[in-house]
Design a protein around this nucleic acid. Structure first.
Length: 271
DNA sequence: AAGTGGACCTGCTAGC
DNA sequence: TGCTAGCAGGTCCACT
């Protein structure tokens, strides 16, 4: 489900309210992608710090360490003082005196992992290979060009890999490539500095617009208050196979790249 | 070393 | 109506 915008919208929607809370209990459901990595009872009494985001991960400081949360494909977080009874897909709860943070994740590709610090332990291991943050001013056409110039994989897969820039998943990679006028199959090294500049700009704009619109709600995404996103209504290509391009009228096509669907306009987007 | 495909898991939909 | 195949917002790991 969640790409950078959904993760950021989620973080913003509960971060302020949980800040300063004290852990009263921790509930674990079925196993997630990775084990928590500590005794859940050892978190009781710890104080919650300011939630931050790196790529599609949320870092929630707790005491001297913290929890690294990932929503996988189908995860969402809810934060409330009063929550409905637990359902079959609720696999983690952090009960605090400010409210309860609950992870619901049917497919269980998500994770909640204890780490002694952002730059130590599991968090360090999971985050160290990540590419640049798209909203970092250092991410621009030049840095993108430098990251792509020796790569032979397609530009779509390069964006999805997260090794150059993080945050664009399948929806936003498709949308950014459309906005930049680049065919998703284009070999990365064939993009010159001019097109890299356009693409870096498109990635920044696509992701920031999506954050402003509250993310994309394709089937079930909601922020921690329960609000749905609106970006999907403005998607130009994602999920629009067979429809006319809003820009030129050509029929939007779908193809498979690395077992993932890519949507593109064969007229607006060039190799 | 970079690139590819499989694996993890459940739910929903389109089509027969 | 009921079954099945195919699809889904991610990413680690083993293998070439």
């Amino acid at each position: 489900m969640p790409e950078l915008p959904e993760v950021e919208v989620t973080r913003q929607s509960f971060g302020d309210r949980i800040l300063g809370g004290q852990v009263q209990a921790v509930f674990l459901g079925k196993p997630l992608r990775w084990p928590l990595g500590c005794d859940p009872d050892s978190l009781v009494g710890l104080t919650v710090g300011a939630a931050s985001r790196r790529g599609k991960y949320i870092w929630l400081p707790l005491g001297s360490g913290g929890l690294l949360l990932h929503l996988g494909m189908s995860g969402s977080l809810v934060f409330a003082t009063e929550l409905a009874d637990k359902g079959p897909h609720d696999h983690f709860e952090l009960v605090t005196n400010h409210g309860v943070l609950r992870l619901t994740d049917p497919r269980r590709f998500g994770a909640v992992v204890w780490s002694p610090g952002l730059d130590q332990g599991p968090a360090q291991r999971l985050l160290m290979e990540l590419g640049m943050e798209p909203f970092d001013p250092a991410f621009d056409g030049d840095s993108l060009h430098a990251g792509l110039r020796n790569r032979r994989l397609s530009i779509k897969q390069a964006l999805l890999s997260g090794k150059i820039v993080v945050g664009a998943g399948n929806i936003y990679a498709c949308e950014a490539l459309f906005q930049a006028g680049i065919d998703p199959r284009t070999p990365s090294h064939r993009l010159g500095s001019q097109r890299c500049k356009r693409l870096a700009q498109a990635v920044k704009e696509t992701l920031s617009r999506a954050v402003q619109l509250g993310g994309s709600t394709l089937r079930d995404f909601h922020d921690a208050h329960g609000a749905a996103g609106q970006f999907q209504t403005q998607a130009m290509v994602y999920g629009r196979e067979g429809e006319p391009c809003g820009n030129c009228g050509a029929i939007i096509k779908r193809l498979l790249q690395g077992q993932r669907s890519s949507f593109y306009c064969p007229r607006c987007q060039r190799r």
